[in-house]
Simulated scan of single mutants.
Amino acid sequence: MASLPARLSAAVPRQFAPSTRRYALPPAILAVLLSVFVPPLGLLFIAVTLFVLWFFRDPERVAPDSGFVSPADGRVSVIRREDDRVRVGVFMNVTNVHVNRAPADATVESVTHRPGAHKPAFSKDSERNERVDVDCGEFEVSLIAGAFARRIHPYVEDGVSLERGQRIGHIAFGSRADVLLPERFDATDVCVKKGQRVRAGETVVARQS
């Protein structure tokens, strides 16, 4: 049976990703200390703290009733056929929300971490980057680290039931999220184009008529 934190990962409203404190607390402490002794540096670390809070924002989203939705905010960077499947990838830059969401209803069969490089997430070399693959049977979501991303934080585990648009994880500081569509989908079922802006949990990237 899925753990309580995993079951509640998407159900509990929140404004920031779960690991925000880990990244925001050190500059916040430095900001307080330096504001007393070196005020200009204190202001700098206040700005850093505010940036971290903004970067790890986690707004609410309303998923549509059907279709495969984008797993990430950003721009579509990959649409390609892999054997008998179609992959749609979304590149997240520093201005995008980095919380990732389930493309469709499913049950998680496995969550696998694969070590690797940290090449820019928009490059072809990123296929060898560190990643976490969330296998949902018919489809798979891959959370891929980028040049500066060093932590992928999955929120789900084996056996968890997902709903379309549910939070499934986040990646710190630049990355890519892909969905490998079910075999029954082909290129004509993809609803987006390369370069198109999409929103996690809301923009439909593939739908069968």
Rank of each mutant, 00 (worst) to 15 (best):
D178N: 06
R150K: 08
E60R: 09
Q166L: 11
A147D: 05
P39Y: 00
I168D: 06
R167G: 04
F51C: 07
I29S: 10
I144H: 03
L30E: 07
P115A: 11
E163T: 09
P27Q: 07
E183T: 13
E127G: 13
V69I: 00
H118R: 09
K124V: 15
G89V: 05
V32P: 04
A206Q: 05
S175I: 14
V94F: 14
V156L: 11
P120L: 04
A145T: 05
N93W: 10
R150I: 11
R199A: 14
D125A: 14
F56W: 07
L50E: 04
P27E: 12
F91W: 10
V32Y: 01
R114G: 12
T49V: 07
A147Y: 12
L41E: 03
H118K: 01
V141P: 10
M1C: 14
C136I: 08
V179H: 00
D84L: 04
F185Y: 15
M92L: 15
E138V: 11
F45N: 03
V88D: 03
V38T: 05
R207W: 08
D65Y: 12
R85Y: 13
G137N: 05
A121P: 00
Q166H: 13
P27C: 13
L4A: 15
F37H: 08
R114F: 15
S3F: 10
L53T: 00
A24R: 04
Y155M: 12
P71A: 01
D186T: 11
L143W: 10
P103M: 02
P182D: 14
K194G: 14
F45W: 08
P120A: 01
A117W: 12
S77W: 02
F45V: 08
S70H: 00
A177H: 01
P5T: 03
P154A: 12
K193W: 13
T107D: 10
K194Q: 13
A200Q: 01
R101A: 04
W54G: 10
K193L: 15
D58F: 05
R57K: 03
D135M: 08
G67N: 01
D189R: 09
K124L: 15
E82A: 09
A187V: 11
G89R: 00
V48S: 09
T95Y: 14
R87Q: 06
P64C: 06
F91P: 02
P182T: 09
H113G: 10
S9G: 11
I79Y: 06
A2S: 14
A24L: 09
F55R: 01
V78T: 01
S3N: 10
P5S: 10
A145W: 13
P103K: 02
F45Q: 05
R81M: 09
P5E: 12
I46N: 04
K119D: 12
A24H: 09
D83N: 12
R80Y: 07
S175M: 13
G137P: 08
D135K: 09
P39V: 00
F56P: 06
A200I: 02
D58Q: 01
K119M: 13
K193T: 15
P64F: 08
L53W: 03
L180S: 06
P18L: 13
L41W: 10
F56D: 08
S110L: 07
H98S: 01
